[in-house]
Simulated assay, not measured.
Amino acid sequence: MLEANRRIFLQSFAAGAGALATSQSFAAGSDGHAAGYDVSAASEYLKTIPRKSGDPVVFTAALDKGPIKATSGGWAREITARGLPIATDIAGAHLFMNAGGAREMHWHNSAEWAFVVEGHCQVTVVDPEGTAEVVNHGPGDLWYFPKGHSHAIQTLGPVPCHAILAFDDGLYSEHGTFGISDWMSRYDTQALSQAFGVPADAFAQIPKAETYIMQGEVLPLNGPQARSARELDRARSHRFSMMAQKPRVSTSGGALYVASSREFPMSTTMTGIFLKLKPGAMHEPHWHTEANEWHYVLKGRTRVTLFAPDKRVAVAELSPGDCAYIPRNSGHSVQNIGTEDAEIVGVLDSGIYHESSLSYWLAKAPRHLLANNFGVPESAVANFNKRSVISLPPGPG
Rank of each mutant, 00 (worst) to 15 (best):
Y325C: 03
L165P: 03
D310Y: 08
R77Q: 15
A342T: 14
L46M: 14
A291W: 01
G36V: 04
I326V: 12
A42I: 07
G73V: 01
T302E: 12
Y45K: 12
P265E: 10
H295K: 01
P320K: 05
H354A: 14
M282G: 05
A365E: 08
M242S: 04
H283S: 11
A19W: 08
P320D: 06
D55M: 11
S357F: 08
L46P: 03
F384V: 12
G272N: 13
S181H: 05
Q190R: 12
P309S: 04
T80L: 10
V58S: 12
E355V: 10
V345R: 05
T211A: 12
D233I: 07
I273Y: 03
T289W: 07
S181A: 12
S350H: 10
A255C: 08
N222S: 10
G375D: 01
T155D: 00
N329A: 15
S53H: 08
G321C: 07
M266Y: 09
W113E: 06
D182W: 03
D310M: 09
E343T: 05
Q194W: 07
W361K: 09
S40Q: 11
G157P: 10
P265S: 13
L84N: 00
V334M: 12
T289R: 10
P158N: 06
P396R: 05
I213M: 01
R186C: 05
Q122R: 08
Y353L: 07
F96Y: 15
Q205E: 15
I344M: 10
A132S: 10
R328M: 14
G216Q: 01
S30H: 11
A202C: 14
G300A: 03
F203K: 04
A114R: 08
A235Y: 07
A163F: 04
D55G: 08
R367L: 13
E317M: 04
K246E: 15
W294N: 00
H94W: 07
G119R: 02
V125S: 01
V249C: 06
W107F: 15
R51D: 12
N373P: 04
E129W: 07
N329M: 13
T124K: 01
G119M: 04
V198A: 15
P393H: 04
L156K: 00
S30Q: 10
A281Y: 04
V315D: 04
Q225D: 08
Q24K: 11
D322E: 09
H106F: 14
M214K: 15
E217R: 08
S185I: 05
A163S: 08
F240E: 00
A291M: 02
A42T: 13
F9C: 09
Q122V: 07
L256H: 02
Y360H: 15
G300V: 02
A202H: 15
P265L: 06
H162W: 15
N336K: 04
R230A: 11
L2F: 11
G375L: 06
I337V: 15
E129C: 03
V376Y: 01
G272S: 15
P160V: 00
S391D: 09
G300Q: 01
D310Q: 05
T124A: 02
G74E: 02
A61T: 12
A259R: 00
S185P: 07
T60M: 06
D188K: 09
S193D: 06
K276I: 09
R7C: 06
V134S: 13
A152C: 09
V381Y: 04
P327H: 00
L142S: 03
M242C: 05
P146F: 05
